[in-house]
């Protein structure tokens, strides 16, 4: 096999191939979701560790109120967005299903996952080519994002149900979560930890996206904008 660097010039001349991967609803969802989660993390952090005290009359301010309102609004956006996204997994193209269905029972997928890990560890010379997610990305998206966001929604609405009150829809649907964790304070703690898990995912995810975009000969960020994945070789 050619060594890295030897074939660069030849490769440059290759034709550009482009594939339509992410349909509009997926792209729209992605950016709305990214925004909402950013809002959730920031407001959530300030729910846990509030800003310094406001001076003056209580009736002149509503700082915690707004922060919490933004959190809950963004929470609804994420939850409803996820439902819509799940719907789209059924009706959209094949790439729309990848997020939810990593082929865990397929040997080939695991082998290529290993390859991808080796590639990131600088042990394999080239990454493989995928129109959709590569196996490592897919695993990350599923384990960190899908599981994570479901966890955040379930615990988040369980906490939200405490405010809505016993018998409210959120309490009826998610109230059981609280005794499951022990008590309300424990749910807060795990929900809070969940924020950091999400933050960790976003750091890795954004890094990987930009890194590939800058350094590789395929499109990434623009794919999430235009929907087309371009391969330059």
């Amino acid at each position: 096999m050619l060594q890295y660097g030897e074939r660069q010039d030849a490769a440059r001349s290759a034709t550009v191939k482009s594939i339509y991967v992410y349909e509009a609803p997926v792209r729209l969802w992605h950016w709305v979701n990214a925004l909402a989660i950013t809002v959730l993390a920031v407001t959530g952090y300030f729910i846990g560790s509030p800003l310094p005290t406001m001076s003056g009359e209580a009736s002149d301010h509503f700082v915690m109120g707004y922060i919490r309102f933004a959190h809950f609004a963004a929470g609804y956006v994420v939850a409803i967005g996820l439902l819509v996204r799940i719907y789209w997994a059924f009706v959209g193209n094949a790439y729309a299903r990848e997020l939810f269905l990593p082929p865990f029972f397929t040997g080939q997928w695991w082998r290529e996952l290993l390859h991808e890990i080796r590639w990131y560890a600088f042990l394999a010379p080239y990454p493989l080519k995928y129109a959709g997610h590569n196996p490592l990305a897919q695993l990350m998206m599923f384990m960190f994002f899908v599981v994570g966001v479901v966890f955040m929604i379930v615990t988040g609405f369980a906490l939200y149900g405490e405010g809505l009150g016993q018998g409210s829809w959120a309490d009826t649907m998610f109230g059981w979560v609280i005794p499951l964790f022990g008590q309300s304070q424990d749910v807060h703690t795990w929900h809070h930890l969940g924020m950091w898990a999400m933050a960790t995912f976003v750091i890795l995810h954004v890094y990987a996206a930009i890194r590939e975009d800058v350094a590789s000969r395929q499109s990434l960020v623009s794919t999430m904008v235009s929907g087309f994945r371009m391969f330059k070789d």
Partner: peptide, 23 residues
């Protein structure tokens, strides 16, 4: 440090078709 440009494995075809491709 290691490289300035990342190429893809030439021999490897683009995996198209999302999850359907596996198997």
């Amino acid at each position: 440090l290691k490289r300035s440009r990342v190429d893809h494995d030439k021999e490897f075809p683009v995996r198209e078709g999302g999850n359907g491709q596996w198997g």
